[in-house]
């Protein structure tokens, strides 16, 4: 139980990821699929950020440990831990995953935009965004040009 509680962030990630995948695969509506996909990608964002989080750490902006904020931060951390995990006496979270996931979010948004744009075009060409109906239309009629 403590293992699960200790890793609750990963549990959330897994839950979101599976939920997103499930929605993507099981929905027949193109918009819903995109929603599922967005959820799936978001879970990865969460995964990266929780990877980079250092317990008790602050944002990776240079901070003087003697400043007020620095003292407040160190107040609820043991000095041993600060000495072990900190840089210049302050504990920071790892900035790299944050930066990475910022890029991934941009990529994700672009994908989402393209996907939704295609859905709009599908709607124009087929008059529907339901996968089953589209397959049916492809089977039954040669179809006008998009």
């Amino acid at each position: 139980m403590s293992f699960l509680l200790g890793h609750f962030n990963y549990l959330i990630v897994v839950f979101l990821m599976m939920g997103g995948l499930w929605i993507t695969f099981s929905s027949r509506n193109y918009i819903k699929r995109m929603i599922g996909l967005a959820l799936f990608q978001t879970s990865v964002g969460l995964f990266y950020i929780s990877l980079g989080k250092v317990a008790g750490g602050t944002a990776a902006i240079v901070l003087d440990k003697t400043s007020k904020a620095g003292e407040a931060l160190n107040a609820h951390l043991s000095p041993d831990y600060v000495a072990r995990a900190g840089v210049d006496g302050v504990v920071y979270s790892n900035p790299l995953p944050h930066v990475l996931i910022l890029t991934a979010i941009v990529v994700g948004v672009a994908t989402l935009a393209v996907g939704l744009a295609i859905a709009v075009r599908v709607r124009e060409a087929y008059g529907t965004v339901e996968a089953g109906e589209i397959a049916e239309l492809d089977r039954t009629e040669a179809g006008p040009r998009a």
Binding site: L21, T24, F25, S26, R28, A131, G132, A135
Partner: peptide, 18 residues
């Protein structure tokens, strides 16, 4: 699983891929 309305049974490409 995967199928509110039986997607798996109908072998739509995405379900198979999933």
């Amino acid at each position: 699983i995967f199928a509110p309305d039986g997607v798996v049974a109908r072998h739509l490409p995405l379900a198979g891929a999933a």
